[in-house]
Computed example of a mutant assay.
Amino acid sequence: MTLLLEALAYLLSPDSWSGRLALGTLLTQHVGYSLMAVGLASLIGVPAGWWVGHSGRGTTWVQGLSGAVRALPTLGLVTLLGLLLGIGLAAPMIALVVLALPSVLAGATSGVRSADTGAVDGARSCGMTELQVLTRVEVPLGAPLLVGGLRSASLQVVATATLAAYTGAGGLGRLMFLGLRTQRYDMMLASALLVIAVALASETFFSLLQRVLAPASVRRNRKEQP
């Protein structure tokens, strides 16, 4: 309890929000790294997942690759890339993108596959091209599952972005490593509390977005339930 109070005092201290290790700066860096990693993973995973889900090709390859990527130890990957690329943001950013990619890919693929078969067949019978079927029917209907994949990826990345400090980059991980080295456990816990707050904010945002994008029939069923 004492350590928690000390961490809260550190968070509320004006000195903690100024200087070289200002909490505001590190928090902004942490959020920026997380958004960048999920954004880059989305640029790769969303189109690939849509194509796999729509065409049905490459499913085995994608599942195998996702399983292999999930098994990679993130810290080991950051260490290896750090040795190859040197200090800075490049190594942890690549590792974070690799970490986020399986969830994004799975969400995009599952979303397209979950589209109602009757709606898809009806779109084809109306003369829509395969691209139109994908973009106008399957993608909108599968949007909640895609957001679910982004939600999972964001949560993993936010929690792991502290490793950016391992190779000399910024973010809230700097306080964790510095606190561990100097035995400032209040600093470490304060940094961890901010990471938890960012994770909760991300979870809340994507949860609300999933509700908004859910099909009207699903929203009606939720309202009718006691």
Rank of each mutant, 00 (worst) to 15 (best):
A108G: 11
G67W: 00
A199N: 07
G32N: 07
A169P: 04
G82L: 08
V120P: 10
W50E: 09
G19P: 12
V120N: 01
V112W: 05
S103L: 13
S207A: 09
T117F: 02
V62F: 04
A161P: 07
G58P: 11
A119H: 07
R174C: 08
L145M: 07
L200E: 09
G118A: 14
M1P: 14
L83A: 08
M93P: 03
T74P: 00
A95Y: 00
R220A: 15
P14Q: 10
A165E: 06
A214Y: 02
A68Q: 00
F206K: 04
T182W: 10
L146A: 09
R220S: 14
A48L: 15
A123N: 07
V69E: 06
G142Y: 03
G142N: 01
S55R: 10
V46Y: 03
R174H: 06
Q183N: 12
A143R: 12
L150C: 13
R57E: 08
G170N: 12
V198W: 04
V133W: 01
S13P: 08
V157K: 09
A123L: 14
T79N: 06
L85E: 01
Q225K: 14
S16A: 13
P144Y: 02
V120R: 10
I196Q: 03
A115I: 08
G45S: 10
L141A: 14
V133Q: 13
R20D: 13
E6N: 15
S207W: 05
T162G: 09
L89F: 07
T74Y: 00
L96G: 02
D186G: 15
V133P: 00
G179C: 07
L11Q: 01
T167V: 06
W51I: 14
T59I: 09
L99W: 00
R124I: 09
P215D: 11
A190Q: 02
S202W: 08
A91D: 09
S55K: 10
S207L: 13
L4G: 03
R70P: 06
V112D: 09
P226W: 07
G111A: 04
A153G: 08
L101P: 12
P144I: 02
R211C: 02
T135S: 13
I44F: 13
S191F: 01
G39H: 07
L96R: 01
L4F: 15
H30I: 01
L80R: 00
R20M: 13
S103K: 10
A119R: 12
T74L: 14
R220M: 09
H54C: 12
V157N: 04
L146Y: 00
V78E: 10
L178Y: 06
L209R: 12
P73Q: 05
G168A: 11
L96H: 01
Y33F: 10
R151S: 08
S202V: 15
G168H: 05
G171S: 11
T135W: 14
